[in-house]
Amino acid sequence: MSEPSIPLRNPYQAAFLAWLCPGLGHFYQGRTGKGCLYAICILALYFMGFAMGEGKIVYWRWVSPLSDPEKFSVYYLGQFFVGLPALPAMIQGTLQYFDPTASILWGFMSPPDQNILNGLHRRLGKLVEVGTIYTTVAGLLNVLAIYDAYEGPAYDALDDEESATEETVEVSGLKAEGQA
């Protein structure tokens, strides 16, 4: 890949910030517009989904997906990439792994019991599924944003070339008008 023409500052730091909060890495690089776009799209999707599931659909349990696939929360693998908004689930899951009675923040985002999840599905129906999809897709979209913060846009050079061509056409058009 060619060298990006936009200053990416420290790409590792930018990527970390982009994971921590969607758009933050781009603000750090001075790409404010793109930072706003990522933050609005990803966080709106995440929080809408989170509200649909009444805050009980983002959770993590330290269990093996092979020995206990029922309890393994596969969606969190995507949700994790939203960063800070999904991080309490990882902290609660880790605390409960060491001490099943332990929880902080009044159990906010701690892994819910199966009967609570069943009740949620009965009461809210498809909203739980839609909410899970929203939060997971938000995390996966932030992977694109993280990569963009780290590497820069894919077609940056091509954009430059095309805009340069457009400018040349405009300038030659103006010159032709001037000569006429």
Partner: peptide, 18 residues
């Protein structure tokens, strides 16, 4: 909303020009 968010984020990751 899902389609709009996916389209915007994907496109933003491809290009720099608005």
């Amino acid at each position: 909303p899902l389609v709009v968010a996916i389209s915007l984020v994907y496109s933003a990751s491809r290009h720099e020009a608005w």
